[in-house]
Structures are given as C-alpha cells and as structure tokens.
Amino acid sequence: MDPRTLPRHELAGLRVEVVDSPNADLVGVSGTVVDETTNTLVVGTGDGPKQVPKAAATFRFHVDGERVIVDGERLVARPARRTETTATSKWR
C-alpha cells in the first residue's frame, strides 16, 4: 500500500495522525480510524472520538510499519464508492 493506492482501501482500523490542516486544532489529532463518512474521518483518541473533515487535512496513516501521507481531498467520497475495484471508477 502506498499514497497512490491507499485511498482505494478500507481506512477503518488504521492508525492515523493529522499532520497538516488550516485548522490548527486538528493538527496532531491521532488515533485509530473508527468510522468514516463521505466528508469526515472519525478518529478514536485518548480523549474520545474526534471528527476530522477529510478535505481540510493531510493525514499520515501507519500501515504495515510504513507511514503513508495522503491529502484528505483524495479521500472525499463515500467509502463504498471509493474502495470499489470494478468498472471505470476514478479510484481504481
């Protein structure tokens, strides 16, 4: 999995950290992705769940010992639509 292919995968359960955002309160939010909507990731943190807008953040995912940085704009889509691997999806 790399920055090019990560958006096609299920994000729930992955460790994540917000590394950049115009909203300084979001930078540093880290934990495990517990839920995902079209426009947000819900990150389970030590202080409870935090809802982070995808389009307003750059994320660092921890996958198999590697760190993968993804611009949140690339994640904005319904999770089921984003992860499809058939037909002519722009996510393939």
Rank of each mutant, 00 (worst) to 15 (best):
T37H: 02
S89N: 12
A56Y: 10
R74F: 01
L14I: 03
F61L: 12
V68A: 07
D25T: 11
R60F: 03
T88E: 13
G13A: 07
H62E: 12
V63L: 05
V34N: 11
T83I: 05
P3S: 00
A55Y: 08
V33G: 04
G65E: 06
G31K: 08
P3Q: 05
T86M: 11
G65S: 06
V27C: 06
T45P: 02
A12I: 15
F59N: 10
A12Q: 14
D47L: 02
T85V: 12
E84H: 13
A57F: 02
E66V: 04
V43A: 02
T45G: 00
P79L: 05
V70A: 04
R82K: 15
I69F: 02
E66W: 02
P49G: 06
K50V: 15
V63H: 03
L41D: 01
E17H: 08
D2W: 03
R8H: 08
H9Y: 10
E66K: 14
R92P: 00
V16F: 02
P3M: 01
T40G: 01
A55N: 14
A55G: 10
V76C: 09
L14D: 01
S21A: 06
T37Q: 03
L6E: 14
F61S: 10
S21W: 00
R74A: 15
V42F: 00
W91H: 14
E84N: 09
N23I: 13
S30I: 04
Q51I: 00
V52F: 01
T38H: 09
T45S: 01
R81I: 11
A87V: 09
D64A: 14
G13M: 08
L14H: 02
A77M: 13
R67C: 02
T32K: 13
A12S: 09
V33Q: 04
A12G: 03
E17N: 09
A24S: 12
F61V: 06
T32Q: 14
T85F: 08
A57D: 04
